Simulated assay, not measured.
Amino acid sequence: MKLVVGLGNPGRTYEHTRHNAGFEAMDAIASLTSASITQKKFKALVDKVQIGKESVLLMKPQTYMNNSGEAVRAAMDFYRLSPQDLLVIYDDLDLPVGKLRLRQKGSAGGHNGIKSIQAHIKSQEFDRIRIGIDKDARIPTVDWVLGKIRKEDAQAYQESIEQAAKAAVFALQHSFADAMNQFNKR
């Protein structure tokens, strides 16, 4: 069993904001796998699917970003998963819009959703797909991440969401190392 988590904030207020890149990637994964991430469980919306040989729980935590670890920990405890069974997809201010970065471990890099997950599972050793949202030094970080994608960035952003979904599915069918080799080139 694998757990794939897309980070974001629930509710209409946050739809299509930069901080919800993970939720948008989960919707793209759902389209690729005919999933419906609507079942309420573990303080999240989930669906269980088969991807290749893997049984996979797709998750969109409903705890708000800063408490994402609560939902992740609950699912990991229920299914007795280790950090190596976890893949998290989220936004990254330090990457330009349209850029993906796949990594197998690392620090939270200031991302509160990742900080929460690391605190709850007591590990940094999990796979992650970071989706670039860039930053604008003139705009406070909180306003930037909770803002909508600019029109001039919309196409690159949408392509990165779709690539993140493809990378996640590819990693589940092959290996995360193979996905890194394939998708980090872009």
Results as ranks from 00 to 15, higher is better:
132 G>W: 10
69 G>I: 00
88 V>I: 09
84 Q>A: 13
121 I>R: 07
167 A>V: 09
169 V>C: 02
148 K>F: 05
174 H>Q: 15
33 T>D: 08
68 S>E: 11
56 V>L: 01
63 T>H: 06
90 Y>D: 05
135 K>I: 10
174 H>V: 01
3 L>K: 13
85 D>P: 00
38 T>L: 15
36 S>F: 07
182 Q>T: 13
57 L>Y: 06
5 V>I: 12
36 S>H: 15
37 I>M: 09
161 I>F: 05
58 L>A: 12
148 K>P: 04
119 A>Y: 04
43 K>S: 14
175 S>T: 15
54 E>C: 03
107 S>I: 06
140 P>H: 05
34 S>F: 05
165 A>W: 02
19 H>Q: 13
53 K>E: 15
159 E>F: 06
145 V>D: 13
117 I>N: 09
71 A>Q: 04
130 R>F: 00
94 D>W: 06
181 N>E: 13
50 Q>R: 13
78 F>D: 14
178 D>I: 05
134 D>Y: 07
53 K>C: 01
83 P>Y: 08
3 L>F: 12
139 I>S: 02
109 G>V: 02
177 A>L: 13
82 S>A: 10
124 Q>R: 12
169 V>D: 07
120 H>R: 15
149 I>V: 15
118 Q>D: 08
71 A>W: 04
175 S>E: 03
181 N>K: 15
30 A>M: 10
158 Q>C: 01
160 S>K: 11
40 K>V: 12
74 A>F: 07
59 M>D: 02
110 G>K: 06
163 Q>C: 00
115 K>Y: 05
116 S>M: 07
151 K>Y: 10
128 R>D: 06
63 T>L: 09
164 A>Y: 07
165 A>Y: 01
104 Q>R: 12
153 D>T: 11
96 P>M: 04
109 G>N: 02
166 K>M: 12
154 A>P: 00
48 K>P: 07
68 S>M: 00
39 Q>P: 03
156 A>M: 11
135 K>N: 12
101 R>V: 03
88 V>P: 03
6 G>M: 10
39 Q>I: 12
77 D>T: 14
69 G>Q: 09
6 G>W: 05
33 T>R: 09
17 T>S: 13
40 K>A: 03
123 S>D: 06
61 P>N: 15
181 N>A: 11
106 G>L: 01
79 Y>W: 13
31 S>P: 00
96 P>Y: 05
100 L>C: 00
184 N>P: 00
43 K>M: 15
147 G>E: 09
21 A>G: 08
70 E>M: 11
116 S>K: 09
144 W>D: 04
106 G>I: 13
128 R>C: 08
163 Q>L: 11
46 V>T: 15
11 G>Y: 09
4 V>N: 01
27 D>R: 02
113 G>C: 01
81 L>C: 02
152 E>D: 15
119 A>G: 09
9 N>G: 07
57 L>V: 14
62 Q>G: 04
65 M>P: 06
88 V>F: 01
136 D>G: 07
135 K>D: 09
92 D>A: 05
177 A>V: 14
64 Y>K: 02
36 S>P: 08
50 Q>K: 15
49 V>Y: 03
136 D>V: 06
178 D>A: 14
